[in-house]
Design a binder for these strands. Structure first.
Lengths: 216, 216
DNA sequence: CAGGCTAAATGAGCGACATTCATATTGTCT
DNA sequence: AGACAATATGAATGTCGCTCATTTAGCCTG
């Protein structure tokens, strides 16, 4: 069934076949269809009906492509609550939305954590809203980023954890009796979700206390 | 200076040149010397004075090698406090030690988070101590792992954050004025460390509250 | 309107890796 | 002594990201 693929035209086409938007969308589609391991430059080019080398006229390398994808994913994160609800409720909703997005893109987590945000407009917009919300909620300037980073660290760690297999802590009871026991005590639930919920509730409670202590 | 490398003997040597211990140590040494990007199977073999293919008689693939390294790194994590101090103090010390270890091995973080611990003896031993400490501290069986995973998520997220460049949040003030302002308000400090300390203190405060509410 | 510059595509091919395989050698077990 | 298993070598393979020379077409300028 090798279909009749007429050899494509060389040279500059009438209208450009590629753009940042098209490349990013195709990459995200590919990831959602077949996972991150399927995201190769060759596969992406194929998806776009283009030769692999053509991509490099638009994106400098695969790492930059991942940053585009990251910014695309960040667009899905909901931080509208910061404009209409108290800081702690908004932070909770943001954290949930953030975790869910990256549970589906856990391979991006190590990329996010290390990449300057400046080149990513949606990402910058997100942090701007979060920072404004915390400041409006009474947090002092010099602690806002610490709060953001702390919560974000927990969120990204949890996103990684969400990608783990359910039996990650399974262990023979004779090797580690206490561990086997407490691991057994949480079967049935969505373990990663439960840990995230407990952790987030804990963090929020701690933050409320801390802010209260700051502003008597 | 291409030194006189006599062609090495083929076939089985009198004493095995390789073992899990030797391979892992050499890999860790290589990483500490030249970073993770230098950890290739060829470079590792070279470090051990052996042909690359010889490694595959001992380790099934690079991913398994990373798991050996992970277990090796976990051996450095200090969790002795769980046997001699209150659960919250021990948890704090553990988290610090854990973060510091993986700040130096952040490339392993996505591997840890997803790999079953069963094949890693030091890792199992670590969790056993932590679980026993929390249980002894009064935490109910069905919440111990949630606490462990929540703290671990924060720790691993923070370890990733520690590997980020200092200027990761730098942004033109006209694009995101509030963000620029709060980012500017924390210059001078070790930002990642400050966020970790704030977050850990917050989590511990929240956990103490929670346990107190459970056991009146 | 001719000539040149630039954008954007093609396809060949390179180098870095992880991994596999046929083969050789040697210690150990029967 | 002979068979087998363990452990090394080195050649080869396949996948990838990426580069480069080349081609083509639109646009700008004199």
């Amino acid at each position: 069934m090798t279909s009749s693929e007429q050899p494509r035209r060389r040279g500059r086409p009438t209208a450009p076949l590629l753009s940042q938007e098209k490349i990013t969308s195709a990459a995200v589609e590919l990831i959602e269809l077949r996972g991150y391991s399927a995201l190769t430059m060759a596969a992406l080019a194929r998806q776009l009906g283009v030769a692999p080398s053509a991509l490099y006229n638009h994106v400098s390398n695969k790492h930059q492509l991942l940053r585009w994808i990251q910014d695309h994913v960040n667009r899905e994160i909901d931080c509208s609550d910061f404009e209409v609800r108290p800081w702690d409720a908004a932070l909770e909703a943001w954290a949930h939305s953030y975790r869910d997005a990256y549970a589906r893109h856990s391979l991006l987590v190590p990329v996010i954590a290390v990449t300057p945000i400046a080149g990513s407009p949606h990402t910058v917009a997100m942090y701007e809203k979060v920072a404004a919300g915390l400041r409006a909620g009474g947090w002092p300037d010099d602690q806002v980023m610490d709060v953001v980073v702390a919560v974000e660290s927990f969120v990204l760690g949890s996103a990684l954890d969400a990608a783990a297999p359910d039996d990650i802590f399974d262990v023979p009871a004779d090797q580690a009796p206490v561990l086997a026991r407490v691991v057994g005590a949480r079967v049935g639930r969505d373990a990663a979700r439960a840990a995230f919920d407990l952790g987030l509730a804990t963090v929020l409670a701690g933050l409320r206390d801390r802010l209260r202590a700051l502003t008597p």
